[in-house]
Design a protein around this nucleic acid. Structure first.
Lengths: 215, 215
DNA sequence: GCTGTATTGATAAATTTTTATCAATTCAAT
DNA sequence: ATTGAATTGATAAAAATTTATCAATACAGC
């Protein structure tokens, strides 16, 4: 099917745009609007209105009303549900350097029902706590991951130790890794890695690739 | 043209994969290999070998050799050149909270010839310096941006002040913004925004979207 | 020097994704 | 109630992207 129904599988491109929709819709909601048109969303995000309608049809059964558009709050909750923001997710941080500590202190996660349960580091002087979150030695990773059923981890170690830390995470049972180290990681089948490369992100901003819509 | 020559315009999708190639190629180089095959790259990154060859043909004029593959170091320098890593880029950080400070201390940028020239904050008690980088009051943004010909900025203020800070950056002459605030920004034509939404990134990791290849 | 094989680069096909068009619908205004 | 305008959802067309196939090539081993 290639219509607005959600018959076919949702596309990766659509999923990648959902967080942008969500951000914008919350902005709209906070300004007090009850309805929003696909054209308004498209305008703000720099994409086409038809594309917006198709994307929304995938994740929401709400039919838009002619002359009004879509109910903002319904869209928000449908997207959040689709993205899994309606369930709590436990994550760990591996690497308690500057960036790792910043993440421990980041308040933004609570908003998305993400619990950072602990951080881990290899060097003894980092052990302790930051922002009320404990920092354990790396040896305890498996124990904590099992205890909290952690499925995802944020990797913030230096480049040199990235693969070793990654291996430890996989070994501990983590299935999804958000990697801030500028290193290429090798993982077994079934483990996902997402790279957050600040320098690369910056570089791509200039490459005349103005994509306001990625996640 | 739809062949391996670089006649047609490079695709956005290809550009998005280049940083991943670069990471992997550096990994390969550091292991001492002189040649690498498209199949090896494809395997490591979870994409198709034909796609890898097409992508590489866009940014490198190097012909791969049958039975050997591509010269790793040539590929690296070609990709770096294409992505602009061979020229220095000055950036500023707006928002000197935990994350902003972590970015000031991040060493990874030097590797990509990115100079973080200064940070800015609205609250007087943040003024000073971190990691040898000055933190100025926001009022001086325009002055510093002009003096260093800064074209890009990293936004690390809280959600509530994101749009205001963004406006100040645009006003100061910044044309590309890497936004860490979980807020939807409105910018004039010609200004690019890239969103780095930690929570969204984490959420997408679970959505059975194992894309190891994005930037 | 031959032979076999891995690997490339091209062409072509298939698939996915985006964009265009338009009748149908609902609200607002008269 | 009727009219007009905005907006949707569907279908169709176009464009972009990925995947498949294969002859040509250069190296490795004999």
């Amino acid at each position: 099917m290639d219509s607005f129904g959600q018959d076919s599988e949702i596309s990766k491109a659509t999923v990648a745009r959902l967080p942008a929709y969500l951000r914008f819709l919350k902005e709209v909601a906070s300004r007090g609007s009850w309805y929003v048109s696909s054209a308004a969303i498209a305008e703000a995000l720099g994409v086409s209105a038809v594309g917006v309608r198709k994307d929304l049809a995938f994740v929401s059964s709400q039919a838009g009303k002619p002359k009004r558009g879509f109910e903002v709050n319904t869209l928000i909750s449908d997207i959040e549900k689709f993205l899994g923001y309606d369930e709590r997710t436990a994550v760990v941080v591996v690497g308690a350097g500057r960036l790792g500590k910043a993440i421990l202190l980041y308040e933004g996660f609570e908003h998305f029902r993400i619990d950072v349960v602990a951080a881990f580091d290899i060097s003894p002087e980092k052990i302790g706590a930051v922002g009320g979150k404990p920092i354990y030695p790396l040896e305890r990773l498996g124990e904590i991951v099992r205890r909290h059923s952690v499925k995802a981890g944020i990797l913030t170690v230096p480049r040199e130790s990235a693969q070793r830390a990654c291996d430890a995470m996989v070994e501990a049972g983590i299935r999804a890794i958000l990697n801030f180290a500028p290193a290429s990681l090798t993982v077994p089948e079934g483990v996902s890695v997402r790279y957050e490369d600040l320098a690369a992100s910056l570089a791509m901003l200039f490459g005349s690739v103005p994509d306001k819509n990625q996640g």
